[in-house]
Design a protein around this nucleic acid. Structure first.
Length: 104
DNA sequence: CTTCTAACA
DNA sequence: TGTTAGCA
């Protein structure tokens, strides 16, 4: 039920996304098959990469350059996403602690 | 644009 | 293991 952010919506074709991330198109398809990201698909089945997807792709390139393999990069992406959620939760809890939980 | 296959480092 | 080129 969580609404989608503008940057989560796929807008770029694979050629554009590959060019933006500096990665080959075949590699992008491989990353998807390995579960590193899941770009949107049009009704016809063509991939639609979002701004966030391109950010992830850049991160992947960075991790691979640091010596991680695809499985390792995937792990890191998962953990980083977990951390973002936890951080957001902490922020919510802190806000509640300051002004109180019951406020309309 | 897609998936698949094979060659290469 | 990951990338790339070529094919259908």
């Amino acid at each position: 039920m969580t609404q989608r952010n503008e940057d989560d919506k796929g807008v770029y074709g694979i050629a554009v996304a590959a060019e933006m991330a500096g990665i080959g198109e075949q590699a992008l398809r491989l990353y998807e098959r390995r579960g590193l990201l899941t770009p949107d698909r049009t009704a016809g089945g063509t991939r639609r990469y979002s701004v966030d997807d391109v950010t992830i792709l850049r991160r992947v390139a960075q991790l691979l350059g640091e010596g991680l393999n695809l499985a390792g990069a995937r792990r890191v992406l998962e953990l980083e996403e977990d951390n973002r959620r936890l951080e957001a939760k902490i922020t919510r809890l802190m806000r509640r602690e300051v002004r109180g939980p019951d406020r309309s």
